[in-house]
Amino acid sequence: MHPEVSEVVITAPDAEWLADFTRQLVEDRLCSSGHCVESIRSIYKWRGDIYDKTEARVMLHTRTSLVPHIIDRTNREHPYEVPCVVATPIVSGNPAYLQWILDETKEVGS
């Protein structure tokens, strides 16, 4: 198990906004990388209405301890009132890649 690393999924209405946001997170060392998918189909209910829209999605790789900081930043900067941000611990993977995630991220305040 590698509970110290997680994958964080964020969706957004605009692929370019999401790519720019991801780039900032990487530059600020809140995540090691982001794998962007420009077009997904999202079907959801919001305030009583059903929506069927195209969105973008990114999967970030980060330290589990940084997830709350990513959530806070997303809530401040995201165009949605309630953005989708969900994290899943990475339970296994290429040891060298998992170490790279740790090497490329830093604790806030470090």
Rank of each mutant, 00 (worst) to 15 (best):
M1Y: 11
M1P: 00
M1K: 10
H2M: 06
H2V: 14
H2R: 13
P3Y: 08
P3A: 10
E4A: 09
E4L: 08
E4S: 11
V5M: 09
S6I: 09
S6M: 10
S6K: 01
V8F: 10
I10H: 04
P13H: 14
P13F: 01
D14I: 14
D14E: 14
A15P: 04
A15V: 01
E16T: 11
E16Q: 05
W17M: 05
L18N: 04
L18K: 01
A19N: 14
D20R: 09
D20P: 02
F21I: 13
Q24V: 09
Q24Y: 03
L25R: 02
V26A: 03
V26F: 02
E27T: 02
D28W: 09
R29L: 10
R29W: 11
L30Y: 04
C31M: 08
C31Y: 04
C31P: 08
S33T: 14
S33G: 10
H35M: 08
H35C: 10
C36G: 08
C36Q: 13
V37P: 10
V37W: 06
V37Y: 03
V37N: 11
E38W: 03
E38R: 14
S39W: 09
I40A: 00
I40H: 04
R41M: 12
R41K: 15
I43M: 08
Y44G: 10
Y44M: 15
K45P: 01
W46G: 01
W46K: 00
G48A: 01
G48H: 06
D49A: 14
D49H: 13
D52I: 08
K53R: 14
K53L: 13
T54K: 10
E55F: 04
V58N: 06
M59T: 11
L60K: 13
H61T: 15
T62R: 05
R63C: 01
R63L: 05
T64K: 03
T64M: 04
S65Y: 04
L66H: 15
V67K: 13
P68C: 07
H69I: 00
I70V: 10
I70L: 05
I71S: 06
I71M: 06
I71R: 03
D72A: 14
D72H: 04
R73H: 07
R73F: 07
T74V: 08
N75Y: 01
R76C: 03
E77R: 05
H78P: 03
H78W: 07
Y80F: 05
V82A: 05
V82Y: 02
C84F: 06
V85T: 07
V86L: 09
V86I: 15
A87D: 03
A87P: 00
T88Q: 02
T88G: 02
P89Y: 02
P89K: 10
I90W: 05
I90G: 06
V91W: 07
N94L: 08
P95Y: 07
A96W: 05
Y97T: 05
Y97C: 09
L98P: 13
L98T: 13
L98A: 10
Q99P: 13
W100A: 09
W100F: 07
L102D: 04
D103T: 03
E104L: 11
E104F: 02
T105C: 15
T105S: 05
K106E: 12
E107D: 15
E107F: 00
E107Q: 14
E107P: 03
E107C: 04
V108W: 02
V108M: 07
G109F: 00
G109L: 00
G109N: 01
G109K: 00
S110D: 08
